[in-house]
Each structure stands twice: as structure tokens, then as C-alpha cells.
């Protein structure tokens, strides 16, 4: 399935949840509404003609304009096609639906995105920090991150 066909399928089915797209680049992407991410991803996974059963990567991004993003790299083992989905949320209220019920692998990736960017994934079964200590302050990969001066009495900046 080409990216254009995929976009048409998604637009006709989800309408307003498909916000924007760019298909003429090397890796075409479609921007979706983060608050409807789960149903869109579930459809993409289950629909026989798309069958995106393999989530390669899920990354958090700070776009440095007051928004955070979640980028899903999906691929299909059966059809061998790929698509990139992007969801946007604001930095003040960073909420996005969790897709860990769709792809098990998203569980840890979402925890990492929460850890590094503070994106809260609604419906995630176990949203804790994963790489940093539980009592760390702030989310280090945000562009406006300021490192804390002391962590448990140890000086942090070097």
C-alpha cells in the first residue's frame, strides 16, 4: 500500500483525527491526533490491507516551539511497507494516548519518552521513569531543561 492510499484510508475513516501529512519526502509521515492514537494504531495493526504489526520505534521529540511530539515508526512484516505517524501535544499539558495495548513494545518506549520528555501517556499500565532514578527532577531531553544542582547531596553539574 502506498502512503497516498494509506492516507486516503485513514482520512475517510478517522476524518478530523488526521491533521497533516507530508508524503513527498524519503520517509512519508502523517500527523495524527494524539488523543485518538490508540484507535488509529489499532486499526492500522488489525486491518488486513495495512497490517502494521511491527512498531520499530517510538520516540519523543521536543520541537522547541511549545510542543512535544511522539513519533511512531510502524512497519508491516507481511506487506513490507512502512509509515511514520506523528502526534503533537503542548508542553503545558503533555498528554497523549498510550499505544502499549496495541504493540507491547510501546510500553518501554513510552516509559522512556515519559522519562526524558515528561509526556504522559494516558492508559499506560505502568508509567514510571525507566532510565533515570525515580526521584530525579525534570525531563532532561527537553530543550529548556535545567539540571538540578544537587541530587541526594551530590553535586550534579560538572
Amino acid at each position: 500500500m502506498t502512503a497516498q492510499e494509506l492516507l486516503d484510508t485513514l482520512s475517510s475513516r478517522f476524518g478530523s483525527a488526521i491533521l497533516e501529512s507530508k508524503l513527498d519526502v524519503n520517509q512519508p509521515w502523517i500527523k495524527i491526533d494524539g488523543n485518538r492514537a490508540r484507535e488509529i494504531c489499532l486499526f492500522l495493526r488489525n486491518e488486513p490491507s495495512t497490517r502494521f504489526d511491527y512498531l520499530m520505534c517510538l520516540s519523543g521529540v521536543d520541537y522547541n516551539d511549545g510542543t512535544l511530539g511522539v513519533v511512531y515508526h510502524c512497519s508491516s512484516m507481511e506487506h513490507k511497507h512502512k509509515i511514520v505517524l506523528k502526534a503533537i501535544c503542548s508542553k503545558d499539558n503533555p498528554h497523549c494516548q498510550s499505544v502499549s495495548a496495541v504493540w507491547g513494545t510501546a510500553n518501554w518506549h513510552e516509559r522512556e519518552a515519559f522519562d526524558m520528555f515528561g509526556i504522559i501517556f494516558d492508559g499506560h499500565p505502568d508509567l514510571r521513569r525507566i532510565l533515570l532514578p525515580d526521584d530525579w527532577e525534570g525531563h532532561p531531553l527537553r530543550k529548556d531543561y535545567k539540571v538540578q544542582e544537587f541530587y541526594r547531596g551530590i553535586r550534579v553539574p560538572y
Binding site: N26, Q27, M56, C57, V61, H73
Partner: peptide, 20 residues
């Protein structure tokens, strides 16, 4: 400006880099 995801097969499996 742009982004790309590239994956290769390492001994452990798919190593991908998502670069912006």
C-alpha cells in the same frame, strides 16, 4: 532539515537511529 529512521541488523537485532 528533516528526519530519518535507519535500521540495520546487529548481532542482537534491529539497531535503529531516528535522527532529526
Amino acid at each position: 532539515p528533516g528526519d530519518i529512521y535507519v535500521r540495520t541488523e546487529t548481532p542482537r537485532g534491529e539497531l535503529g537511529f531516528y535522527v532529526i
